[in-house]
Design a protein around this nucleic acid. Sequence first.
DNA 1: CTTCGGATTGAACGCATGTTTAAACTATAG
DNA 2: CTATAGTTTAAACATGCGTTCAATCCGAAG
Lengths: 193, 193
Amino acid sequence: MRSISEQSTPARIRDAAIRAFARDGYQATIRAIAAEAGVAPGLVIHHFGSKDDLRELCDAHVTTLLLDEKTQGAATIASIADHFVGEDSPPLIDYVRRMLNSDSPAATALFDRLTEATRRMLRDQQAAGRIREDVDVEALAPLLTLYGLAPVAMPALLARATGRETVDATALEAASAAMLPLLSGGLYGDTSQ
Amino acid sequence: MRSISEQSTPARIRDAAIRAFARDGYQATIRAIAAEAGVAPGLVIHHFGSKDDLRELCDAHVTTLLLDEKTQGAATIASIADHFVGEDSPPLIDYVRRMLNSDSPAATALFDRLTEATRRMLRDQQAAGRIREDVDVEALAPLLTLYGLAPVAMPALLARATGRETVDATALEAASAAMLPLLSGGLYGDTSQ
DNA sequence: CTTCGGATTGAACGCATGTTTAAACTATAG
DNA sequence: CTATAGTTTAAACATGCGTTCAATCCGAAG
C-alpha cells in the first residue's frame, strides 16, 4: 500500500519527531509527533521504545545528516547553513539550536567534529602565512568554533542584530562575512594582506 | 516570626523559582519551587497568580539585577560574569542561559541593553584611535554582542573548549581574554598597538 | 478580648502526558 | 485457503502537572 519512493513508517515518525522537537523543543508531545506522522501514539512507542530513545535516535540522525553527508573534511559552521535552506528536509537549524542548549552528548560530539574542522582550516591558513606564527591555532580552534556557533544558538538575537525578520542561511552567512575579515585583519591592524 | 534581615515570603519564593528555573529550566515544577522556598504549592499561585506570571516576574527581576545594580554605563558581557561568582544570590548565569534560549521578550531586552553598552565601548575605542576609522562600529556592536554571549549561552561547550570541568567566572573571563586581543590585532596584523 | 482580613496549608480537581494493552488489520509463507 | 507474525489502532491506565478550594492560622485594628 506504500510506493517505493515513500519512506518507511519509522522513518516518517523520525522525521516528524525532528520537526516537532525543532519547533517545540523536547516538550513536543508524542501525540503531536504521531499526528504529524499520521499514525497512532502507541505506534511511536512500539517502534522506538520510549520518547527518550526516540530523541537519542533523532540526535544521532541529525548529527549524521550534518557531518557525513557533505562535510567530508569541510564541516565548517558555514557548511551547516547549507542544510537549512532546503525546506524539504526537516528544519535542521532549529534542531541544532535545541541540541546546543541541551548539554546532550550529541551536542558535544557535534562540537568536537566542528572543532576538528576549524582546527584543520586554521592550520592551513597558518601554513599559508595568513595567520601569524605566534598564534596558538590548536587552542584557538575550539574557542573560535564556540563563538561561531552563536548565530546558530541564538537565531532570534541574530535577527535583531541584523535587523531582519527571519533567520535563513543568508543571515548566517552575513554574520560570518562581517566577522571573519575583522578576525583576520583586526580592528586596528592593516587589511592589506 | 520573621526577623527584619530575612526576606519576605514572596521574595523567598521568587529566588527559589530563579534557582529552580536556572537548574531545571521552565520545566521546573511549582511543587519543587514551593519545596525549595519552604511553602505550600498553593501559596506560590496565591502570590504570583500563575506559573507564567511567576516566570515573567523572574525574568524582569534577573534583568534588573544584571543591568541596574552595577552596570550604570558599563553593562558589558564581562560585567555580567561578576554576578556569577557569589553563591549567595541565585546562579544567574544559568538563568541567563535559559533566557537566551527562550526567545522571551526579556532576552531581547537584555540583548538590547548589552548592545548599547558594547556600542558605547566601541565608540570610545574608535575615538581613542584604537579602532580604524573605516570600521562601522554601529553595525558591529550588535554582532559583537551576539558572539560575545556564546560562552554564556553554551557553558558546557565552553568547558569543553577550555578543558575545564566546571564553568565559573574565571572561565568566562579567560574566553574573553583569549578572543579580545585577536579581535584587536587580528590574526595577521601586528599587535604593536 | 474580639473581630476580621490576609497568609498559609493540605487536599482535591481536572487535565495532559508517556506508556500499556488487547484487539483488529495485513501481508506473507506453507 | 489457512496460519502466523508483524503492524497498527483505539482505548485505557497511571502519574505528574498547574490550579482551585475550603479550612486554619495569625497578626493587627477596634
